[in-house]
């Protein structure tokens, strides 16, 4: 535990601003923001790393000056206070201006990402996400497919006090659901989000999406998943007693597999399935 944490600090000092996803050592990736699988999550990651490096540079300068002062101006080493050093317009202008420039630089870097996030045009499909106390509801708009997605049964058993099943025995404890949200890779997916009772927030770190679900109102956003895989997240806005127990699981499939999955879930296919199994 301590070495991992020490390694994280050491790695954070490496000047690798846009570290490619595959190259990042796995230990560090588990302790850092995920690069993720959408352009939105990558934008967030890049800004995050940029901000970290800027902060490290400022930190070296500021903490360096403090440490230098603490070492060199000690009374015990015979330092005598220079009581005339109480003001310097030049220094004060410098240390007002430099941070201002750095901040303008940082703010400027966020603008393209901000515009990108808001661009919900030309989506390929729309899903509707609704937060409930304490589960999610998903609807594939215009497809007649919808379902609830709640905490998986094994996690739900293990999370009880004095449960016989231990959390360590559950795969993806608290991050598994009974019905996963299946989505296609490569499609621009627009989501409409709302809530049924109180405010929730739909957060999947690897998609770079966190959006509040507000009862009575709808919000929207989009993402495009680049790689097939399973991505897990959780409700991020305190929503009552089981706030910690309403996870999100997204399974991204190649388009053909997704189409097959969706076809099987359509009402007609479900009805046929029901009638063939009396």
């Amino acid at each position: 535990m301590i070495p991992r944490h020490a390694r994280a600090i050491a790695l954070s000092l490496l000047p690798v601003i846009s570290l490619p996803a595959g190259a990042a050592p796995s230990g560090w990736r588990q302790l850092n923001l995920p690069v993720g699988v959408t352009s939105i999550s990558r934008d967030a990651y890049d800004l995050h790393m940029l901000a970290i490096y800027v902060c490290i540079l400022i930190g070296i300068a500021v903490f360096g000056a403090m440490i230098y002062a603490m070492i060199n101006f000690r009374k015990s080493k015979g330092a005598v206070a220079d009581r005339t050093l109480t003001h310097s317009t030049k220094a004060e202008v410098i240390w007002t201006a430099i941070p201002a420039f750095i901040l303008i630089f940082l703010a400027w870097q966020t603008v393209p990402a901000l515009i990108h996030i808001e661009d919900t045009r030309d989506s390929d499909m729309t899903i509707r996400i609704t937060g409930y106390q304490w589960k999610w509801h998903y609807e594939y708009m215009g497809e007649g497919v919808s379902f609830y997605s709640a905490l998986g049964e094994r996690s739900n058993t293990a999370r009880q006090r004095n449960a016989a099943l231990r959390p360590a025995e559950v795969d993806h404890y608290l991050l598994e659901v009974d019905e996963v949200l299946v989505l296609p890779v490569g499609a621009k997916i627009r989501y409409l989000i709302s809530a049924n009772d109180v405010i929730h927030a739909w957060w999947v770190p690897e998609l770079g999406i966190k959006r509040d679900a507000i009862p009575g109102f709808i919000n929207e956003g989009w993402f495009r998943i680049d790689q097939p895989g399973t991505y897990r997240g959780q409700c991020a806005e305190l929503c009552g007693k089981d706030h910690g127990f309403m996870p999100i699981v997204v399974e991204a499939l190649p388009p053909e597999e997704f189409a097959a999955w969706l076809a099987a879930r359509r009402p007609a296919a479900q009805a046929a399935l029901a009638s063939s199994q009396p």
Binding site: T120, R121, R190, L192, S194, G216, I218
Partner: peptide
């Protein structure tokens, strides 16, 4: 022009 899809939602109370 950047808006192509609008959604009108009602919630009944």
């Amino acid at each position: 022009a950047r808006f192509k899809n609008l959604t009108l939602s009602y919630r009944l109370y």
